[in-house]
Amino acid sequence: MSIQHFRVALIPFFAAFCLPVFAHPETLVKVKDAEDQLGARVGYIELDLNSGKILESFRPEERFPMMSTFKVLLCGAVLSRVDAGQEQLGRRIHYSQNDLVEYSPVTEKHLTDGMTVRELCSAAITMSDNTAANLLLTTIGGPKELTAFLHNMGDHVTRLDRWEPELNEAIPNDERDTTMPAAMATTLRKLLTGELLTLASRQQLIDWMEADKVAGPLLRSALPAGWFIADKSGAGERGSRGIIAALGPDGKPSRIVVIYTTGSQATMDERNRQIAEIGASLIKHW
């Protein structure tokens, strides 16, 4: 067993022997301040990774656009098919120029040779490549099948209805392509620590998230040296922004954090800054 596999296998073990965790309302004060600064709703939840206990939450059962955070769930569904012998990570998928959609920095470079399922998941999570996500959605049967996968996990809230990039439209009061912070946090925890996926697939999923290259201005910008984070960000229309993450000190994750916002007129930089400040408060009061 590799060191990384050992780390993920012992996530519940280490967490069980940690000192009790206590909620700190100071972080919620910052979440509410972010709402004021952005002029928009902000949803927040913080779960203990081992027990699933909610440590703090704000608007945990209000719907927010998922945006690209759905790509972690998508690759979880792909990995479940791999575990069941219905898919192979090494299978190569070929596609054409007509398949390319807006923001496809990886797939646009491989029109000639195609990409493997493993490479597509890596591109979808680490670079948020939209064509990679659409190609992977095709392998599982489309958005409705991802929703069905989530329902089978016990998540009857999260739903995907459309493809990239239309799913980022974020129309107010439109339930399409949305989740709730509580539902997303619980589902992410199941994917990373539950028995739904094999140990190898859980490790692969967290490795992809740990290698995320496009979430630097968010929670990662607030992390002290030595902290662990595996995350996936999302951005959408109407001032929408979000991030889902597993993080913790001492090089291992111990909490799940989900943050979503929508309806702001603020710039992307300002949305990023507010999420980073929430992260800084979380870490300060850990």
Rank of each mutant, 00 (worst) to 15 (best):
H24I: 08
T27G: 02
K32L: 02
K32N: 01
D33Y: 02
E35G: 03
D36L: 04
G39V: 10
R41L: 13
V42L: 00
Y44T: 11
E46F: 15
S51P: 04
L55V: 06
E56I: 07
S57Y: 07
P60C: 03
E61R: 06
E62I: 15
R63H: 05
R63G: 04
F70C: 04
K71N: 08
C75W: 08
G76F: 02
Q86D: 07
E87Y: 06
Q88W: 13
Y95P: 02
L100A: 14
V101G: 01
E102N: 01
S104V: 07
V106W: 00
K109C: 13
H110P: 14
L111K: 08
L111T: 07
D113N: 06
M115D: 04
V117I: 02
V117E: 09
R118N: 12
R118H: 14
C121E: 00
A124Q: 01
S128P: 03
D129M: 12
D129Q: 15
N130S: 07
T131L: 11
T131W: 13
A132F: 14
A133T: 01
A133W: 03
N134A: 07
L136G: 03
L137S: 05
T139P: 03
G141Q: 15
P143H: 06
T147E: 15
F149G: 14
M153I: 09
D155C: 10
R159L: 08
L160A: 13
W163N: 03
P165Q: 05
E169I: 01
I171R: 02
N173A: 13
E175K: 02
P181I: 09
P181F: 11
A185P: 04
T186F: 08
L188W: 04
R189A: 10
L192W: 05
L192G: 09
G194E: 10
T198S: 13
L199F: 01
S201E: 14
Q203V: 13
E210F: 08
E210Q: 12
G216K: 00
P217M: 00
L218W: 05
L219Q: 11
R220C: 08
A222W: 07
G226T: 06
W227R: 02
K232H: 13
K232M: 15
S233E: 13
R238Y: 09
R238W: 06
I243D: 10
L247W: 05
P249S: 04
P249M: 10
D250R: 05
D250K: 00
G251Y: 15
K252Q: 03
I256L: 14
I256R: 14
I256A: 15
V258A: 11
I259G: 06
I259F: 11
Y260S: 00
T261W: 08
T262K: 09
S264Q: 06
R271I: 12
R273A: 10
Q274R: 05
I283F: 10
I283Q: 12
I283M: 15
H285T: 02
H285E: 06
W286C: 10
